[in-house]
């Protein structure tokens, strides 16, 4: 399966991501476009659940490239990220060599000659045959362009970060016994971070930086409509409005987009067609995961519903046309 062609313009990015069901703002599109043009990795930061990992996945789909994912965690090291020697195979090989050693040194008379003969075979031992490639190396040596996702890079150790630098700046891997391997294609790289730890400047310098925040109300509504088809219009609006309000509170963990979607789906299952206090109270634990947060959100919720009721009452008697906006005559 060959990869599709790269993005042409910023708008092209936006469109192709939308085709994959990912609504992104202009800024995300701009940065993805730049990353593909400048061949630079993108460091994606932002709160949990705003679609950082998802972005990498849809870009891979949009370009029809294979996605290689490297999940970072504490203690992740080269042997799990880059390459490893296949010890058991080498061991087997050594044993084979032991049996064959007689054949190899046959015909030699002195010790020096024998050592020379064995020395000739030596290179085979540390050759690419025994290297097990891990995601980073796979990405670099791949015959087709791939997309590399280094997920939650903030969870990795600082030492690992230092070693990522070589890979990300030159797209080369040095294996001491074999030499330096250069990338056949420079892969598009996404690194995601939840800001558990500040990444070093050296790493940041090599990356483009993308900060994804919670979406604006209109955009969230759009996402909701796309991902939860069949949702009642009114319900969707109320839901997003409430979520936006809740995010404004001082919470331990603000609800993210994925939680908005979960909530919407849950309400659909419960056959809700509008937000009423009882229903919301019962389902608040879908979007909020701390008891203290839930209590706070509940007070906010009753405030909002009261306001709504008051507004609905005031609105009913007469419908006022919105004032016609004066067109700006300046250019």
């Amino acid at each position: 399966m060959k990869g599709l062609k790269m993005f042409d313009t910023v708008d092209d990015v936006e469109k192709r991501l939308l085709d994959q069901g990912y609504i992104c703002g202009k800024n995300i599109a701009t940065i993805v476009y730049l990353a593909s043009k400048l061949k630079k990795p993108v460091l994606v930061e932002g709160p949990a659940g705003v679609g950082k990992t998802e972005l990498a996945k849809v870009v891979a789909q949009a370009l029809n490239q294979k996605l290689l994912r490297l999940q970072c965690y504490e203690g992740l090291d080269e042997s799990k990220a880059l390459y490893e020697w296949e010890y058991s195979k080498q061991l087997l090989y050594t044993q084979m060599l032991r049996d064959k050693i007689g054949e190899v040194i046959k015909g030699t008379t002195t010790l020096r000659d024998a050592a020379e003969k064995i020395g000739e075979q030596d290179d085979v031992f540390f050759s690419e045959r025994f290297v097990v490639p891990r995601p980073l190396m796979t990405a670099i040596t791949s015959e087709e362009p791939v997309l590399l996702l280094i997920d939650e890079v903030d969870k990795s150790d600082p030492e690992f970060e230092a070693f990522l630098l070589e890979v990300l700046s030159d797209f080369t891997v040095s294996i001491p016994e074999i030499g330096t391997i250069h990338a056949k294609h420079i892969p598009l790289v996404f690194l995601t971070s939840n800001d558990a730890r500040e990444m070093t400047d050296a790493l940041k310098r090599r990356c483009l930086h993308l900060y994804i925040d919670f979406p604006e109300e209109a955009q969230e509504l759009e996402i909701l409509r796309m991902k939860v088809p069949g949702i009642d219009d009114r319900l969707a609006q109320d839901l997003v409005e409430l979520i936006q309000r809740i995010r404004g509170l001082d919470l331990k963990k603000a609800p993210s987009i994925s939680e908005t979607l979960d909530w919407a789906r849950a309400l659909m299952v419960l056959n809700a067609d509008k937000l009423d206090e009882a229903m919301v109270s019962d389902t608040l634990n879908i979007i909020l995961k701390h008891q203290g947060d839930i209590a706070k959100a509940q007070t906010e919720l009753s405030k909002l519903l009261q306001q709504k009721a008051a507004a609905a009452k005031a609105e009913q008697p007469q419908q006022v046309d919105p004032p016609v906006e004066k067109k700006s005559i300046l250019h």
Partner: peptide, 18 residues
């Protein structure tokens, strides 16, 4: 042509801390 694109391009390349 678009100010926003220009702004994002400068930001993503130069400002790396949220």
């Amino acid at each position: 042509d678009e100010r926003d694109v220009f702004k994002d391009a400068l930001r993503t390349t130069m400002v790396k801390r949220s």
